[in-house]
Amino acid sequence: MQMRDTGLGFSPITIGLHWLIAAAVAVMAWLGLSAGQTDAGAAKAELVAMHSTLGTALFVVAAYRLWARLTSYHPLPVGTPNPIEVMISRSVAVALALAPVLLPLDGWLAMSAAGDVVRLPGGIALPAIVAPNPEVEYFARLLHKIGAYAFLAGLALHIFGAMKNHFVLKNDTLKRMLGKRVEL
């Protein structure tokens, strides 16, 4: 099995992780937005705990994905796209790979600064990375919110590009990420 991406195609690992992370991010966004709209209490605590657990798992997977993305060649684009569009789309894709690494770290910082403990299944608790500090908590939460919305904006652009390639340009860009072998 091809373990790494090359200029000629994605590895099955990349394709699998792409869709796994996409699903996890969708759940993360729903949990995060739901928690933000829920009053303090057991329900909110439950949503935050699930968000933290999934965020921790996502961090591990996304860190590998980012490392693989930065240390592998990327498959050549399908068709003959505008070079500027290629530069923009690849920058957005790297930013989207970076966000699930940075946002969980920022979330851990925010919870530590708030004096909360990140609890994982099996009774595991992540150690606090800073002492409780309201100012750090404020900025960490603000960054988390800005980062999350910037991520969603980038994701919208990413999906728009995929749809444009599939429906307007009618090429195999999307199908390639769904596992189709595209000869270049």
């Binding site: 090359t6 200029g7 000629l8 060649y73 050549l76 270049l184």
Partner: peptide, 10 residues
């Protein structure tokens, strides 16, 4: 200088 060694070999 583009696409990596697999593309160049191909």
């Amino acid at each position: 200088s583009f696409g990596g060694p697999e593309v160049f070999e191909a």
